[in-house]
Simulated scan of single mutants.
Amino acid sequence: METSKPVVLVLTDGSGHLDAGRLDRTAEVLAGAGARPAATFFGRMADRDLYRAILAGEAETFRALVDEIATILAGEAIDYVAADAVEGFNPGHDVCRLLVNAALARLHDRDGRDLPNLEFPLEAVALRRQSSTREGIELHLDTGAFDRKLRAVDNYPELTEEADRLRAVHGLTSFSVERLTPVDYHLDISECSEQPPAYERWGTERVKSGYYKTVLRFKEHVEPLARQLAA
């Protein structure tokens, strides 16, 4: 973000199962890196509303989001788009990727623009995805940039648990490399992560414990949404 000074779209408010979001904290991080939040697409919905829409198969809700993203991209001087990778870890992240891919296709159909489409991993150290092109971006942070990134993480207490888990799994040095990998799978994400994805296993456990009422599943909820957006 420090290098490219991007306009940043944020799908949900980060509230999770709680009532309070954390957009103010995110805005602080963006400001510190010189990035700019999108005026009309910054915490577009609450997390619980996103999951409800996925479970209910609300195709029109997601088509409207695709239109919004495409309109924002059309109105900006964009060189490339970077967004979540499909990792099967968080269904919200995977659906965000579907929306971006569909919006870029819509932009091409409407305006004839083809923007480079890149993804970044959140759970994996690096994506092992096969791609028809090797073009991408890889940044090895110098000491100053690495320190600024770690300070930004430490100043975002709502993500402390996530950051500590990633440090334990991948090591602190994994934070020192930024990789953006080309996306060429469009809306067919059936081979992008293990099946069943991790979020199904966790959802099953949480339903058993009474925390959730329904398990959000790839075959029943996410893959049908991908087909609807492709249509």
Rank of each mutant, 00 (worst) to 15 (best):
M1G: 15
E2Q: 09
E2D: 01
E2R: 04
T3W: 02
P6Y: 02
P6W: 04
P6I: 03
L9R: 01
L11E: 05
S15H: 11
G16E: 00
H17N: 13
D24H: 06
T26F: 07
T26H: 00
E28Q: 13
V29S: 10
G32N: 04
A33Y: 07
F41V: 12
G43K: 01
A46R: 10
D47V: 08
R52E: 12
I54D: 01
E58W: 03
E58N: 09
A59L: 06
R63N: 15
L65Q: 08
A70D: 03
A70E: 04
I72E: 09
Y80M: 13
Y80K: 10
V81Y: 08
A85R: 03
E87H: 02
F89T: 14
H93L: 12
D94G: 06
C96I: 00
L98C: 10
V100H: 02
V100P: 03
A102W: 01
A102G: 12
A105K: 07
A105M: 09
R106T: 08
R106G: 03
L107M: 11
D109R: 04
G112S: 11
D114K: 00
L115W: 03
L118T: 09
L118I: 04
E119M: 10
P121A: 13
L122R: 07
V125E: 12
R129H: 14
S131V: 09
S131T: 12
S132V: 14
T133N: 06
E135L: 14
G136Q: 09
G136P: 15
L141K: 06
F146L: 14
F146P: 07
D147F: 00
R151A: 15
V153A: 11
D154S: 14
E158D: 14
L159I: 00
T160G: 09
A163H: 00
A168L: 08
V169Q: 12
H170G: 02
L172H: 09
T173G: 11
T173A: 14
V177D: 15
R179D: 06
D184P: 04
D184H: 04
Y185L: 01
L187P: 00
L187A: 07
D188M: 04
I189D: 12
S190D: 14
E191Q: 12
S193N: 05
Y199P: 02
E200L: 00
R201K: 13
W202H: 07
W202S: 03
V207G: 04
G210D: 10
Y211A: 15
K213D: 15
L216R: 04
H221W: 00
L225Q: 05
R227C: 14
Q228F: 10
A231F: 02
A231V: 06
